[in-house]
Design a binder for these strands. Structure first.
Lengths: 161, 161
DNA sequence: GCGGTATACTTGCGACGTCAACCATCTTAG
DNA sequence: CTAAGATGGTTGACGTCGCAAGTATACCGC
């Protein structure tokens, strides 16, 4: 168990490299980005993300579950995030006539304004720290590759009682 | 800027798309991976990362600052992470003879064992959730693209102690 | 109608990680 | 030698997020 394992290990390292870069790149870019967004607009990356989703949604409203799924936060994460946005007056709750369980998150006028105000500079930051590093083709290729990763979480049903 | 307002916006979306996928992919993959690592080995992704850095370091030791730089955590983050690893007995402190300010983090025998034990399954998970989605060429391309993003120098090379 | 299960959402709690402030030590200039 | 400033490291207060558990509502088979 020596040289065989070494080459095996080398292979593993080769497969690990991209993943490590992915991790580090994410950490570095998001830190920069969220610091800027925070200081410019007083928003979290997730805050902005949610605002953006709502902004583009039909009727400027989305069920909390759907929000959670697209933004990739847990349900509780969404609840708390929206708490903040509601307190700031950028989002309101609205109940659903046909299903009393669901609560919509609705973008208010203030929320739209906030989002519109924050958008330009945040997009510019994204561009500077991320987009500008690639050509159009490369961006497309990158997007395609990233799109293959499992975005929807497989639920761990293996541990049912 | 003439009559191309719509396509301008479309362009913005096109530039945002890859970033959003990047964010989402990171969230999804990372969540899955850390859940598995946690349940299999009782380790955080960052724990594992630090263990791995130490494992590959000359003398199995690294200054805390360097650790922070390569793992992309803040200095305080490293302190707290290492607190945990020390409590578990996988890492020890060691002082530096030539500079009393620095504290080395040194992998213990137990730490090596722990890392070796966790490595196989974690690498398999990374492979399943990340590596296996790409061909060798694609992985290389992805790695190159990600490498252009702003991070602190990947320091794990043939380096002077 | 009545149970049983699935879904939408909230809440308690703990883990993790950041910033700001702090102490200790090294280095350099005068 | 000493004062000033950089560098390594720790700690306290705080924010964010996930999981587990709980509530409320809907749907399905009988």
């Amino acid at each position: 168990m020596s040289s065989q394992i070494l080459s095996d290990q080398a292979q593993h390292e080769a497969r690990l490299g991209p993943w490590l870069r992915f991790l580090r790149a994410h950490a570095a870019v998001t830190r920069q980005l969220s610091a800027r967004l925070e200081s410019h607009a007083g928003l979290t990356l997730s805050d902005f993300d949610v605002l953006a989703q709502l902004f583009h949604a039909p009727d400027r409203r989305l069920r909390r579950v759907d929000l959670a799924r697209t933004v990739l936060l847990s349900a509780s994460g969404i609840t708390r995030l929206l708490d903040g946005l509601e307190r700031a007056g950028w989002v309101e709750k609205a109940s659903c006539a046909s299903d009393a369980r669901v609560t919509y998150a609705v973008l208010t006028a203030a929320g739209e304004a906030k989002f519109s105000e924050a958008r330009a500079s945040h997009h510019a930051d994204i561009d500077e720290l991320f987009g500008s590093r690639f050509s159009d083709d490369e961006r497309a290729a990158l997007s395609e590759l990233l799109g293959r990763l499992p975005m929807t979480e497989p639920v761990c049903e293996s541990e049912k009682t």
